[in-house]
């Protein structure tokens, strides 16, 4: 029982990371119908920049973990804007249906290469800002950092939701997501909204990067698998549902930890992908995705 609890807790922490990255996929998909396939690299860059500010890799540490977070968020936002401007805007403008897929993948590879050259190919340890002694919750050992992952992830998604519902700028983002042309008629600069959604998307990935870095290893290749699995989560949960990515993320996280323990760590990626295939076959809009009904 304790072991099961342990696996559940670890699964939830891992799942929340997937959820935050998947949330980023949703954000750009909603406003522009495009996705940043370099989300994993955005996460990695966030973690590497965080490590450079907070760790001793590039002559640091320059500041503590908590001061570093806002700077990493800012970096993530700028990086997302760059991806939008270089990779996505031209594709949207030329009405190229799939151009953005290649360009965001290409930018992701470029970012990974740049990171390998700056920080090397080896994984580096990330200093933990919280005590590393586990706390006991319901019979399971939970790292304080794992709690921080869950709280931070939920907090970020909550803040974005409040922004979308309460502020006029957030309402403009939602309006752009539901009808870009009509939003333009309201005086909303929809290209700017799309750029903003890319900033938000990479910012969430960078945030996920600094949340997860202290409990894993940090390196140029850390993002690839995370980005892919978070994409599976976005599909499982539904590309339009905020609740869906949380449920989808936690489902996948728990599926991985339990398979890893009861079956074999070699198979831990299988159940999530089987789940993905099942969802695609049975409910392609995702567990929580809505099939849009248009009233004429």
């Amino acid at each position: 029982m304790d072991i099961l609890m342990q696996l559940l807790m670890s699964g939830i922490a891992l799942g929340m990371i997937y959820a935050v990255i998947a949330f980023g996929y949703q954000s750009t998909f909603a406003t522009s119908g495009t996705l940043n396939f370099g989300q994993g690299e955005a996460l990695m860059l966030g973690a590497m920049v965080g490590l450079s500010l907070n760790g001793d890799v590039l002559g640091g540490p320059y500041m503590n973990y908590w001061l570093m977070i806002p700077l990493v968020l800012l970096f993530g936002a700028l990086q997302g804007m760059l991806v939008e401007f270089v990779g996505v805007r031209p594709a949207i403008k030329s009405k190229s249906e799939f151009g953005w897929i290649m360009s965001t993948i290409a930018l992701g590879i470029i970012f990974r290469n740049v990171a390998e050259n700056i920080w090397g190919r080896d994984d580096l340890p990330f200093p933990s800002p919280l005590p590393t002694a586990p706390i006991h919750i319901l019979g399971a050992n939970v790292l304080p950092m794992e709690l921080m992952v869950v709280v931070g992830a939920l907090l970020m998604m909550l803040l974005v939701e409040v922004f979308n519902r309460r502020s006029i700028y957030g309402k403009a983002v939602v309006a752009t997501a539901s009808d870009r042309d009509a939003a333009g008629l309201m005086g909303i600069n929809t290209s700017l909204v799309i750029m903003f959604s890319y900033a938000l998307s990479s910012m969430s990935a960078a945030f996920a990067g600094v949340l997860i870095a202290p409990i894993t290893l940090t390196g140029a290749s850390m993002g690839a698998v995370l980005g892919l699995k978070a994409f599976a989560v976005a599909i499982i949960g539904g590309l339009t549902s905020g609740l869906g990515v949380i449920v989808g993320g936690v489902l996948l996280g728990i599926a991985e930890t339990t398979t890893g323990f009861y079956l074999s760590t070699g198979y831990k990626d299988v159940p999530g992908l089987v789940l993905l295939l099942l969802v695609l076959a049975i409910k392609p809009s995702g567990l929580f995705g809505k099939t849009t009904i248009k009233k004429v």
Binding site: K171, A172, A175, S178, D179, A182, M186, G187, I188, V296
Partner: peptide
Amino acid sequence: PEGRRVFPTQSVRDNLMLGAFT
């Protein structure tokens, strides 16, 4: 516009506020 194009997932009041966005 033709076909109304209201923002379906937002409230009537939010739609009106978006009309005043500028």
